[in-house]
Write a protein that binds this DNA or RNA. Sequence first.
DNA 1: TTTTAGCACTCTTTAGGTATGATTGCTAAC
DNA 2: GTTAGCAATCATACCTAAAGAGTGCTAAAA
Lengths: 337, 337
Amino acid sequence: MLDDRKKRVLQAIVEEYINTAEPVSSNALTKSYGLNYSSATIRNEMADLEKSGYLDKTHTSSGRIPSEKGYRYYVDELINDNDISIEEIKYISSKLETKVNEIEDLTKLTATTISEVTHYTTLSIGPKNDEQLIEEIKFVQLGSRMIMAVILTDNGLVKETIIKFDEDITAKQVETVNYMFNQKLKGKPLETIKGPLEDYLFDEMSYSVNVIKPIIEQIKKAIAEDEKIFLEGANKSFDLPEFNSLEVAKNFVNVLDTKELMEDMLNSGFAQDINVYIGNENEKEELKDFSIVTFKHKVGNKDLGTIGIIGPKRMDYSKVISVMKYISKKLNGNIEE
Amino acid sequence: MLDDRKKRVLQAIVEEYINTAEPVSSNALTKSYGLNYSSATIRNEMADLEKSGYLDKTHTSSGRIPSEKGYRYYVDELINDNDISIEEIKYISSKLETKVNEIEDLTKLTATTISEVTHYTTLSIGPKNDEQLIEEIKFVQLGSRMIMAVILTDNGLVKETIIKFDEDITAKQVETVNYMFNQKLKGKPLETIKGPLEDYLFDEMSYSVNVIKPIIEQIKKAIAEDEKIFLEGANKSFDLPEFNSLEVAKNFVNVLDTKELMEDMLNSGFAQDINVYIGNENEKEELKDFSIVTFKHKVGNKDLGTIGIIGPKRMDYSKVISVMKYISKKLNGNIEE
DNA sequence: TTTTAGCACTCTTTAGGTATGATTGCTAAC
DNA sequence: GTTAGCAATCATACCTAAAGAGTGCTAAAA
């Protein structure tokens, strides 16, 4: 347990380092953070904090930088989760008033807004398939050999995909397909489509395998594909001093380009709505130099997808978390102005 | 006009520099390019080529690198447009056999294939709106306050968008809308939708402005939005030595992140199906360190969109152009195996 | 007991200086 | 027209020295 002054020193070092990206000296703290002690006293505290693992040095006579344990303590105990200015509130409000017709668009809009306010790169992904129920499936004939399947889910999402056939299909066939699919799938989780649909649809529809088969194939593909990741503000990260190391920059581009990595990242455990992963807390080796904050995006209890912020370990956690909390409140109508 | 030996020297320098990214010395050419002259002779030729502007030096006693004029001459006169191996042919063939149901998917697939074979970053965009005719518009009711508009174009593309209303709409209304839109828009270029639709639809449908207005708004938005750019292999560029310059790397990420820039790039003048822009030949200052090869992708006379390759000026033009030409032939069934 | 002044020590950063090696341009010979 | 030979040029790597920032520790002050 840290005493009060140690906490203040740690907080000051974390925040100073977030601002400057330079190791923080004992002298800097006495001047700018109202710690009314001599630099020698601060040095003693810093030595203690280092011994307990909250701070690191880059070399023997350098100033201190926060360790991952230090960041973790800061995020858990010292953060200001209301670090948001009037201007930012106004900007966010105006952005969120934009009318969107699809839920995925709202997720993207939110991600873009977060990226703009925090100046970090954001990733977003739509709601997970296993948390959505199929409300209805519609099949619309678009031509003699082409139909469109439209899947409506309970959280208001619409997924559509096109199916082409090698032979003509009739309106009657489409109607039958429509009936059967709804019969079997209505109310089930979207995830069901990924399973062995053939087995229990073929039985009853064996008379039209060449119609049913491409449909199943295609909607499976569409469902899988729909877990697409949206990326915003990749260039913003490149202005950060961390990215002067080519290795870090390269790693970053690689991470963003590796879709599986990002999916894992966005889908990893959600104890809370906001989760913070600092450096090596990330499961993937490639992410050891980055911090990620994920934000499970909800209105009421409708899942709207997940937004992730990726930035240096020296991320402005207070700002990021404050913005996320504000947006969450705003979208749920819990704002007392 | 260059004499034969000068051409050979220029070609050797361009190709050597493309391979090594290092200034090419006179000595290197006598050894590896079968130019059976002494290095002094080559030096004389190099001095002449430099005087005529085809080569540059990085400093007084360095080897030569191609100037933009040198690359241009190489692309126009010296290129080998059949620089493609059996393995590459096999790989491309297998990729292009993948079944895709939407034309945009074919463009993406092609872009991905090019990226994989050439190891450069590719951008792609679907067919231009003004080159597609509206074949049919379908309106499908998805709920009491939600419909979907599906636009079919003559080149086989399908665009769909969802429209939500503040009040219930009836099947009858949807039917009327369906009739009116098809009446007015069938056979017109997709671009028409961007124009002042209101004027000539409102006249005849003034009785239901609150139905028509959101529809027009939304399909306009959808058409505009649909000119989306697909990006593949951004991380590949980072392995190139050019990207050891942080300024170049940063510029690159900025370019990729700036959608307008990429759109302009993909839509700029098409004298031929394949266009090459070298360094400052690009209209945008930001692209001065890059070369871009655009490829107007067609099957028969159906426009399938545009694919662009972005890489360093030291791009392997022969490979890139060979691959594009091969794919073009393949998709048009003009391959004699 | 806590805080602070003072100072030696450590390490980074910058600048300058030198040697090395690659490559050219030029001259004169082939 | 071609080539050998050689001085001149410049990048690169490596070394050293000096300056500056910051710490750790000791002993004195509060």
